[in-house]
Design a protein around this nucleic acid. Structure first.
Lengths: 192, 192
DNA sequence: CGCGGGTTTGATGATGCTCAAGCCCGGTGG
DNA sequence: CCACCGGGCTTGAGCATCATCAAACCCGCG
């Protein structure tokens, strides 16, 4: 399993991973399997890990007073999942993260984070990742503010076509900030 | 003017600034004044600087086909302003940034970015900043997806009360993703 | 076969947008 | 000192978009 992560880092950085680096990675990242709907993080808990998804799919969401789930992020293999705010500050999270499919993860515990971050290749990779993350969040915000439901759905198809066969419609709808009914109508509209 | 920035860095990092660091900062950051409505960045241009606001206020926004301005970010003294995506990738920006008040800036050009980033105190400060930025963006997205116009306005008051006397209502409305009319009605509602 | 999760369809209603008009107020020039 | 102008704010009427609620449908699976 660690092989997948080592490859991932390799492809995304200039620096090489030394043998010691690889050893550290193997030691730091704990393999973990989650079944469908099993939690990586529950609302109110402190986020103890950054998770790298080897296979499977996860969702991060909030639950409001009426019990409605609002999806904030979706992730599939070769993505990372965690609540950054809760992890870095070690404060309780307002989000829950669970597995939507059977999922294999590599978990980096908080205690190891600093040490792993000293690996040059890892840090390079992280910086790039943060950057992409930032700009895609900015984009998403722009879309939520400016675009109508239908255009947002088109953007989703363009940006993350894989999601369409990985998540059911009501999850995608929530991610887009619309209801499942509205998404259903949009899809039948555009078909014609 | 550089003094303000040096102080700012000092307050937000463990590491001390050496004399050489301070020299580099003074060399790298170009002082610049903008009058009301003068541009720091125009849509379609490549973002050449990261700007630190010494005094004044700026806004970052897009303009849609109908000429409507959609405010993405607001910033006042002791904040940073730039289009991160455009800056790091040196690609054309979809945003414009202009001064809302008379504004004094310190501009860090792209060519200096790497060198300045080698200053430990500066990098520490940046990492923290990125973090805060990330989490506040996440929050904002959450609010846009989950809260009604009125609650979003209350959140704005809570999080950035200074904005209320620094920007006119129609700018704040746009930042919240609502129209000025709606914001006006909300304000008169809650008064009673 | 029947159950359960997911999707669709329809009717109704709330929220917030659009367009249009009027108001308020500080600043400028006669 | 007043008249006027312009930017910003308010108010109202009508409308678009999307949410809500309820019911039916679809289909894979035990």
């Amino acid at each position: 399993m660690h092989h997948s992560l080592i490859n991932y880092i390799h492809e995304r950085s200039q620096s090489e991973l030394s043998n010691a680096d690889i050893q550290l990675i193997k030691e730091a990242f704990i393999p973990k399997k989650l079944g469908k709907k099993e939690f990586l993080l529950r609302t109110g808990e402190v986020c103890k890990y950054i998770g790298f998804i080897v296979s499977g799919a996860t969702r991060q969401y909030t639950v409001d007073d009426k019990g409605n789930e609002q999806v904030m992020n979706l992730a599939i293999e070769q993505w990372w999942t965690s609540d950054r705010e809760s992890f870095y500050n070690q404060t309780p999270s307002i989000y829950a993260i669970d597995a939507w499919e059977e999922t294999e993860l590599l978990l980096l515990p908080f205690e190891y984070y600093t040490r792993v971050n000293h690996i040059p290749a890892f840090r390079e990779m992280r910086v790039k990742l943060d950057d992409n993350n930032y700009t895609s969040n900015q984009r998403r915000m722009n879309h939520i503010l400016n675009l109508k439901a239908e255009q947002r759905y088109e953007e989703l198809i363009r940006a993350y076509p894989e999601f369409l066969h990985r998540f059911p419609q009501h999850i995608l709808a929530s991610y887009l900030g619309i209801t499942k009914e509205t998404l259903s109508r949009i899809r039948n509209q555009t078909k014609k």
